[in-house]
């Protein structure tokens, strides 16, 4: 049985009677298997937090239904609150209580003790244990995040919801964090994680790409990349700024955007496209030191392509 089932969820926010309601989620459906790391990847304002708030029973959707662990998010909200862990995007533990007190507090309100589930959080908590007498508000960003994860795990939840857990966290801590998630997965915990960072998508078992409240694709990160279906060229030259303008105004180009040190380019006539044609065109326009490479698409390329087609519609 899937751990999380979402069926045709729609959520609107009504600002005032005169204005059009803002549609946060539009007819969203997906399933998450037990013990899976499921990533929800999308830019700010895509509807990630609304989706999490619906699944953690904090928000009620206008249409559609959802179950978590087999319980309905509206009818059986009490059972769900017993068995899910939620880590909101904003640090929301008691800043004026110490690390230890926060953990004890959350253990007690779930009718359990820190000792009983210590093995589950040991890897994470042991890193902040030296500071257990310190007030939570005085911790560094990475430590706060570890404490929040410990508190969300202390009752051994079957499903864990992490809303942008790595936003504002340094690169090393981010890497550590994903390793922790992999270990939790081995414990059989289903993990739903949202992130605006495309590079983190490849660390999930499956991802849903979400934009403007709509899911554009759901698949394994590799399959999404394979479905890119077009040749992707990485282009560089001496005058980078000029190249972007030139390529964008060239009729043959389907899409062009900057990616790291290069521009990623997709041609309209994909089947007959070749590096020489692009090279010749740029050379003709007066650019030198031109380098063109055929590369594999990554999640960000897929996202850009999907966004492009969505907009075309």
């Amino acid at each position: 049985m899937p751990s999380v089932v979402v069926k045709n969820i729609t959520k609107k926010y009504t600002q005032s009677k005169k204005e059009q309601p803002i549609i946060a989620l539009q007819n969203i459906s997906f399933e998450v298997e037990k013990g899976e790391i499921f990533g929800i990847v999308g830019p700010d304002g895509a509807g990630k937090t609304s989706l999490f708030r619906i699944l953690t029973t904090l928000l009620i959707a206008e249409q559609g239904s959802a179950t978590v662990d087999g319980y309905d998010v509206v009818k059986d909200y009490k059972s769900i609150r017993q068995r899910v862990g939620y880590m909101p995007g904003k640090f929301s533990l008691y800043q004026d209580l110490s690390v230890e007190e926060n953990l004890n507090f959350f253990a007690t309100i779930f009718h359990t003790t820190v000792e009983k589930n210590y093995d589950l959080i040991k890897d994470i908590y042991s890193q902040i244990e030296p500071f257990k007498k310190r007030r939570a508000g005085k911790l560094s960003g990475g430590m706060k995040q570890k404490l929040a994860l410990s508190c969300a795990l202390i009752h051994r939840p079957s499903v864990l919801f992490l809303d942008e857990p790595t936003t504002g966290v340094d690169a090393v801590s981010r890497k550590e964090f994903w390793e922790m998630l992999k270990r939790l997965k081995q414990e059989g915990i289903t993990i739903l994680v949202s992130t605006p960072y495309m590079d983190e998508a490849s660390l999930c078992d499956r991802v849903a790409l979400i934009q403007n409240g709509k899911i554009m694709a759901i698949d394994k990160p590799n399959s999404i990349n394979q479905n890119f279906g077009k040749k992707l060229w990485a282009v560089r030259a001496n005058n980078m700024f000029g190249v972007l303008k030139t390529l964008k105004s060239w009729q043959e180009v389907f899409s062009c955007y900057s990616f790291g040190e290069n521009y990623h380019v997709v041609m309209k006539d994909d089947d007959n496209a070749n590096a020489m044609a692009i090279h010749d065109y740029l050379f003709k326009c007066g650019y030198r030191e031109i380098e063109i490479q055929l590369i594999d698409a990554n999640i960000e390329d897929s996202f850009m392509a999907l966004m492009h087609t969505e907009n075309e519609k």
Partner: peptide, 13 residues
Amino acid sequence: EVGTIEQINVTPI
């Protein structure tokens, strides 16, 4: 304001 109520609300309290 701090958001702790959010965290409390998802508990069985």
